[in-house]
Structures are given as structure tokens and as C-alpha cells.
């Protein structure tokens, strides 16, 4: 019975140990968070552009997307995608007369679910960042003959980046923590591994505490990284 196994064995990398499972679980957690962040950045930028669009229906649709995805529990989004995706895919396939393709991989579903939520928050951040670039500096770029691409690349993007880095750091932390919800979809990320280990060894406190420590390592390491990046970019703004 594993009740008697010492902690070092349980958390170790031996045959009775869960060490490797936990480490690879943490790796998958990072993968989900990274995938979600990337999806969120892409979709978030599109949403920001849509909200600034002159086409009223497009701007309204983007705004509505934000209100809904920020007002609904992340768990519901994960559940909807996990349980709803096979049916949606089957319906889509049926339109083309194809057989139902079955469930998409859990990693993809997880990234997409967290990414859809992340996009709603990132769009807000980008919008704020765009507003923070002084109008006069954009005019100076126009007056110098820079086209839209050069203006964005040389003047707008660097300044927006400076303004959005701290809030993006926050969103990254939320992605990291929200990735635990994907455990419900059966993906063996850190939360899921600790749950399985807790169940099969009947040592829930030990494994949940270990998982907490691993999450803390990931969140505080990313805090440190973001702070480093901010400090680098901050020389022109009066930082060190």
C-alpha cells in the first residue's frame, strides 16, 4: 500500500515515484498557457482592429465578444468546447457529407478554450495601449512621409509594447492558472497529474501541495521574466 511509502519515494523519479509525471504535467501546463497566449494575442489583435473599424456591425460584434467572454466563467467555456466540439465538428462535417471526425485532441481544445477567453482580455489591453500613444507622435511620423506600415513598425508598436507589457504579464498569469481547468478535458497537465496521483496513492494533501509549489515556481518565474523585459524597455520612459 502506498500509504506507507516515504515522501521522497512518492515524489521521486523511481518506479513508484510521480516525479516524471509531475514534471511533464508542468510542461503540458506551460504548453497550454503558451498556446492560449498565442491564440489570445492573435485573436485579441484582430478584435482590437475590429473594434476600431468603421463598419459599425463589426465593431459591435467585437465589443459583444468581449462582454460575453469576460462575463462568463472560464470553466463554462472549457466545458462547452470539450463537450460541444465533437458535436459541432460532426455537424460541420455533415454539411460536406463527411463522417464525424470525432473529438479534437485535448491539448488543442484546451489551448483554444483558454485562448478564446484570453483574447477578450488582451483586446482590452491592446485598445488601451493604442490610446496611450500620443497623437502628435503619429502625426510626426505621417509628416515625415512614413506609410501606415512604417508608422506601426517604428512608432506605434514600440510604444504600445511598452504600455501593454505589464497587463499582458497579468493575463499570462491567468492563462497559466486557467490551464488547470483543462484537466477536466482529461489532458494530463499538472492539475490532472496531481489529481490522479492523489487518487491512486491516497495522499491528496501531499500531491496537491506539491502541485501548488510547482505552480508557484512557474508563476513567480514568469513574474520575474516579465519584470526583466519591462525594465529593459523602460529606459526611454524614465526607468532604469
Amino acid at each position: 500500500m502506498s500509504d506507507d511509502l516515504p515522501i521522497a519515494t512518492l515524489l521521486g523519479f523511481g518506479p513508484d515515484g510521480w516525479g516524471w509525471a509531475l514534471v511533464s504535467g508542468a510542461g503540458l501546463t506551460l504548453a497550454v498557457a503558451l498556446g492560449a497566449m498565442a491564440i489570445g494575442t492573435l485573436l485579441g489583435a484582430l478584435l482590437t482592429a475590429a473594434q476600431a473599424s468603421r463598419a459599425v456591425w463589426l465593431a459591435r460584434a467585437a465589443a459583444a465578444y468581449g462582454v460575453i467572454l469576460r462575463g462568463v466563467p472560464e470553466l463554462l467555456v472549457v466545458l462547452l468546447l470539450y463537450f460541444g466540439a465533437p458535436g459541432m465538428l460532426a455537424a460541420g462535417a455533415a454539411l460536406f457529407g463527411l463522417p464525424p471526425p470525432g473529438s479534437p485532441p485535448a491539448l488543442l481544445t484546451g489551448c483554444l478554450a483558454i485562448g478564446l477567453v484570453s483574447a477578450a482580455y488582451q483586446a482590452e489591453v491592446f485598445r488601451g495601449g493604442m490610446l496611450a500613444v500620443p497623437r502628435g507622435q503619429i502625426e510626426a511620423a505621417m509628416a515625415a512621409g512614413m506609410g501606415p506600415f512604417a508608422r506601426f513598425r517604428r512608432v506605434i508598436a514600440p510604444q504600445v509594447l511598452h504600455h501593454v507589457l505589464p497587463p499582458l504579464g497579468n493575463i499570462w498569469q491567468f492563462n497559466l492558472k486557467d490551464s488547470a481547468l483543462v484537466s477536466i478535458a482529461g489532458l494530463a497537465e499538472l492539475m490532472r497529474v496531481s489529481l490522479v496521483a492523489a487518487g491512486s496513492t491516497r495522499r491528496p494533501f501531499l500531491f496537491f501541495a506539491t502541485a501548488m509549489v510547482l505552480y508557484l515556481v512557474m508563476t513567480s518565474a514568469s513574474t520575474a521574466l516579465f519584470r526583466l523585459a519591462e525594465r529593459r524597455g523602460q529606459r526611454w520612459a524614465g526607468g532604469r
Binding site: A180, M191, S194, A198, F208, A211
Partner: peptide
């Protein structure tokens, strides 16, 4: 620094 889901469990 940790997920609420984990805290609940």
C-alpha cells in the same frame, strides 16, 4: 500564484 481549482481540491 496557484489555480483556484487546485485550492478547492
Amino acid at each position: 500564484g496557484t489555480p483556484l481549482l487546485l485550492q478547492m481540491f
